[in-house]
Amino acid sequence: MMPVTTTATHSMPAANRKWSRYRHPESTIRFAVILAILAFLGYSITYLNIDLSRILGAFPRLVEILATRYFPPDMNYVSDADFLRSVLRTLEMSLLGGFFGVVCSIPLAWLAARNITVSKRIAYPFGRFAIMSSRSIHETIWTILFVTVLGFGMLAGTLALTVFCVGFAGKLFSDELEAIDMGPVEALRSVGANPLQVFQYAVLPQVRVAFTGIAIYTWDVAFRAATVVGFFGGGGMGWYLKRTTQQMESTRVAAILLVIIGLVLLAEIGSGWLRKRIGKMR
């Protein structure tokens, strides 16, 4: 079959306007910023002395090490009663840390929510600062600090987790609070309710379900963190991880890691399921 030549003609008069993708200040600035970032990255790689070829090599190496040194996981070690007790204690710490963290972070989030805070001048910056500083410092550092002050044990771990949860939940809570419908708040304010009453009757009902979901999520994340606070003396199963790592008992480390991954997955599935159910109650 012969290809048909169509009648379409597309000639147009020459353009009398000019166009270029380049916009004077913006394009230059964007180009400069991208260049600066690339330069920073390049400088970082040389400064930190990073061999790029080793990055990809790291994964085969990791697999090889896992296969040779860490295999087979020493499952006897983790079915030991003492270890199982430490698992239980990890769970306890995460529950307590999550609970105290959530309890402390609700008032802080109230202060740190711009729309309903008690006073924009004092309370708002205070709330923001408290939440931001709990968030900014890694839970590991909190653990070490608390262990130094209070000694080894689960008290330090629980407190570290509490601070961690304050930072984590406080941000989510205050974001949630800043998104509420201000109608009921203004209505209650206009009838002369005090801030506490406003919070209880106009704000809490709007965010109760969301807060419950966030609280469960917080516990989930706290549990993940709780598995390692013991590494720095905070109690729980992390202590076993530290001991076996230091003594190079790789098969035991592997077993502990398996337990941790399994538990974290369980926690994640459980919290996901609970959150879904609570979401439905909305």
Binding site: L62, T140, V228, F231, L257, I260, I261, V264, L265, E268
Partner: peptide
């Protein structure tokens, strides 16, 4: 689900 501390320990090995 693996904490950064644990990732770090694994990669130190590698």
């Amino acid at each position: 689900s693996i904490h950064e501390i644990i990732w770090a320990l694994l990669f130190v090995g590698a």
